[in-house]
């Protein structure tokens, strides 16, 4: 029979193949959405053009840390000349621009192009979508703010600084940027989710972060010069960044950086903590409400 075998090869249309493999369900879908959104915040899995800004901001965020490390190692200093907890405060504008550019990318697109109903026609529910998007944005900010701290810590080890002390300071710095990431991500996503137009979202996020910080520090300055120092601490409750500053001053060994070196005590620190938790919960609640309307 072999003589009858056709010489030519043939391409067979194998037709439709059904899928009998595993279906990993809701938790898997939520993780997939989380990782897609986290990668998307850095432009991974998106076009080359959309990688430029987040990667540039990431580089800008890390550059000062490298300089700090280089100088500390060169001068053989016994401690880094910038506190871990102060780093994010100094580079707040970079963080704000990152959040303003990536939060709308993460949520406004789905709203504007009406992709959200497709998500909800799949196993995930509203709470999964919100958690995945919130978690991804907070993680993206944490990567942005914690990486320079890691560079500084590695540098402190290279400069043979005291291990125990550096480890403690580094740990406090990580907790501080973790709080900042969760708080900022919530604020940014709420702003972006309320504006399907991406441009408005960008403007709204920058405005809320910088105007609130500018207003609070200005008022604090006025209070200081008018020697009304009692209100300085309480004014700090009214912008996301001053909340983080007050909180880390109270609990995370950060130096007092409000005007007049006003120290936030444990009692007022607790108020700061409650306000932060309340804001995060409010952001989550607003996002849940927002997506109740658009489900299909």
């Amino acid at each position: 029979m072999s003589s009858q075998a056709p010489e030519t090869t043939q391409i067979h249309n194998i037709g439709y193949r059904s899928y009998d493999g595993p279906r990993l369900g809701r938790a898997y879908a939520r993780r997939a959405l989380f990782s897609q959104s986290l990668r998307g915040a850095y432009g991974l899995g998106r076009s080359a053009k959309s990688k430029v800004l987040p990667m540039l901001l990431f580089a800008v965020m890390c550059a000062p840390a490298l300089i700090i490390v280089a100088i500390s190692v060169y001068t053989k200093a016994d401690k880094l000349f910038m506190e871990y907890t102060q780093y994010a405060v100094y580079l707040q504008l970079v963080i704000a621009v990152f959040l303003a550019s990536q939060a709308p990318q993460s949520v406004s697109r789905d709203l504007r192009f009406r992709t959200v109903p497709l998500y909800f026609s799949r196993p995930i529910e509203r709470v999964d979508y919100v958690l995945a998007k919130y978690g991804a944005m907070a993680s993206a900010l944490f990567v942005l703010t914690a990486t320079p701290l890691v560079i500084m810590w590695i540098g402190s080890m290279l400069a043979k600084m005291d291990f125990a002390e550096q480890a403690k300071l580094f740990g406090q710095g990580l907790v501080s940027v973790a709080v900042l990431s969760v708080l900022f991500a919530g604020v940014g996503l709420v702003m972006a989710a309320l504006t399907p137009r991406r441009g408005f979202g960008v403007a709204a996020v920058i405005a809320v972060l910088t105007i609130s910080y500018g207003a609070v520090t200005t008022l604090q300055g006025i209070s200081y010069t008018t020697e009304n120092t009692g209100s300085i601490i309480w004014l700090g409750l009214f912008s996301p960044l001053t909340l983080v500053i007050g909180l880390q001053n109270a609990f995370l060994g950060a130096p007092a950086s409000f005007p007049g070196e006003m120290q936030v005590g444990a009692g007022t620190g607790a108020v700061y903590l409650l306000v932060v938790l309340g804001l995060v919960a409010a952001c989550y609640g607003i996002l849940m409400r927002r997506y109740r309307k658009v489900g299909l």
């Binding site: 493999g21 369900g25 997939a32 076009s47 697109r109 992709t115 497709l118 995930i124």
Partner: peptide
Amino acid sequence: CLPPDVSATEFVVHMARMSGLP
């Protein structure tokens, strides 16, 4: 319901994973 800035392949792969496919 389609985002304009991704390819059909990327989009459909993502939606397949959203349905629970490895």
